[in-house]
Computed example of a mutant assay.
Amino acid sequence: MADQAPQAFFERISESRFAPTEHTRGPWDAGSQHAGPPAALLGRALEERPGARGDMRLARVTYEIVRPVPIRPLEVTTTVLRSGRSVELAEAALTPQGEAEPVMFARALRIRTLDEPGPAVAEGPRLPSPGETAETPFFAVPWDVGYHTSMDTRFTEGTFREQGPGTCWMRMRLPLVAGEEVRPLDRVLIAADSGNGISNVLDFGRHVFVNADLTVHLHRHPVGEWVCVEARTSVDPAGIGLADSRLHDEKGPIGRGAQSLFVAPR
């Protein structure tokens, strides 16, 4: 009897090496990952790196996606670029086995949290909850298992199969790393790269969209299993676009995400 496939996005091989499973597979290339799982993996590495301060929280992370991340073992490295009393800048890189150059970078700004709670400022109304919304099918994908089957998706506006703005609740069906607890940051970063897919404005069958980067700002630490991506995409005739997303959990807004796009006819 064949071994059952791991029920996680990654398996840990060693402290810094991870093997992606078929659940990371994106919708466009059977040999490449959706950018969400490796983004979450790099975010986790920045949080758990040796010497990371517990009194700091990730406020912003920017990903540079040099090229598609392959589905083969990956090495994660981290570097502290600047460390101050209240602010820290750190970088993580993802390098496939057998290659010398990273395929994805993450540069994170971590900010010290207050010892005593300060004033909070509310930012708008809550969205309809995921419990009020039916599960929404993904658009057609040529393989049975991948990111599209490993995330629970529920739209309150639009769908994957409609063009235009979209608002979608997302929940991981599997842990990020086999045998390890899912962290709140995992849930946000694995979903944030879906903004362009949620708010696509042109036919995916007739146009190619290349997501060259992703920036996520968080003003509040997320709570709960669900993350909502409220996305809008704009494209200039020159072929440069922007997918801009407001990010929420069930308590309300938590931050924003943005993706730079290259858009061209197929």
Rank of each mutant, 00 (worst) to 15 (best):
A2P: 15
Q7A: 15
R12H: 07
E15V: 12
S16R: 15
S16I: 13
E22I: 07
G31P: 06
A39T: 14
A45D: 05
E48D: 10
R49D: 03
G54Y: 05
M56I: 08
R57I: 12
L58Y: 01
A59W: 00
R60C: 10
Y63K: 12
I65P: 10
R67L: 10
L74M: 15
T79D: 15
V80D: 15
S86Y: 09
L89K: 04
E91W: 01
T95S: 08
A100I: 05
P102D: 08
M104H: 12
F105E: 02
I111C: 06
E116S: 13
G118L: 02
L127N: 03
L127K: 04
P130F: 07
P130D: 07
E132I: 00
E135S: 11
P137W: 06
F139Q: 06
V141C: 02
S150W: 03
M151N: 05
D152L: 14
D152T: 02
F155Y: 03
E157V: 14
G158T: 10
T159N: 08
Q163V: 00
T167W: 03
M170G: 06
R173Y: 03
V188C: 08
L189N: 01
A192R: 00
D193E: 09
S199I: 11
N200R: 13
V201G: 11
V201M: 13
V208H: 13
V210K: 00
R220Y: 04
P222W: 11
E230N: 14
A231E: 03
A231L: 09
A238W: 05
A238R: 12
Q259V: 09
S260I: 03
F262N: 03
P265F: 11
R266C: 11
